[in-house]
């Protein structure tokens, strides 16, 4: 088993800065823009991106929280249910451009669930996807609009995103068997 750090605090910071710039550039500003983080790491990342955008554009981009548990497609096939925690979308989604934020993009199933859930909150004008890591192995036709770092991995590898909000140092670790 090997473990290596593939992103350090500086790397994560740079990646999020770049993503923030790209979001502003692609959307020509922040008009109608909202960020929605997917529990748990996605929330922290969305908040950081919102902060960075504020530094750059001097405008506030609201952040919502999505808990996709109830929309998972493996709930009924798995024994034991994950805990359900609150979703919090404190703004009207209709007509907005939603940037979904998650830590790792893998099979795409989480994003499918997140989009279904978002749609139930209202009809956004557009949904975009920002991830810190894209590790490949998609099982659905989903791709990210903003990627911090593409990391080719084997299917058995494990990627862990650690963030300071959870009481650890910012780091992304790749563990291979």
């Amino acid at each position: 088993m090997s473990e290596k750090v593939i992103m350090d605090p500086l790397g994560i910071g740079r990646a999020l800065s770049r993503i923030s710039h790209e979001i502003i550039e692609r959307n020509k500003g922040t008009e109608g823009l909202v960020l929605v983080g997917i529990r748990t790491c996605g929330i922290h990342l969305a908040r950081r991106i919102s902060e960075k955008i504020k530094e750059i554009e001097k405008s506030e981009v609201p952040v919502g929280i999505l808990d996709i548990t109830l929309y998972r497609d493996d709930l009924l096939t798995k024994k034991g249910h994950p805990a359900v925690r609150k979703t919090d979308i404190p703004f009207d989604l209709v007509g907005t451009v939603v940037v979904l934020v998650d830590d790792v993009l893998y099979t795409g199933r989480t994003i499918r669930a997140a989009m279904d859930e978002l749609m139930d909150f209202g009809r956004p004008a557009m949904i975009q996807l920002a991830v810190l890591i894209d590790r490949g192995h998609r099982e659905l036709p989903i791709r990210a609009d903003y990627v911090g770092k593409g990391v080719p991995t084997s299917k058995t590898a494990v990627i862990k995103v650690l963030l300071s909000e959870e009481g650890t140092e910012d780091r992304v670790i790749l563990r291979e068997d």
Binding site: L70, Y71, L75, L76, K86, T87, D116, D120
Partner: peptide, 13 residues
């Protein structure tokens, strides 16, 4: 929270 949404239905079951 779910029961407070506009669409109060989730696909879980």
């Amino acid at each position: 929270e779910v029961t407070g949404r506009e669409i109060k239905k989730v696909p879980t079951l």
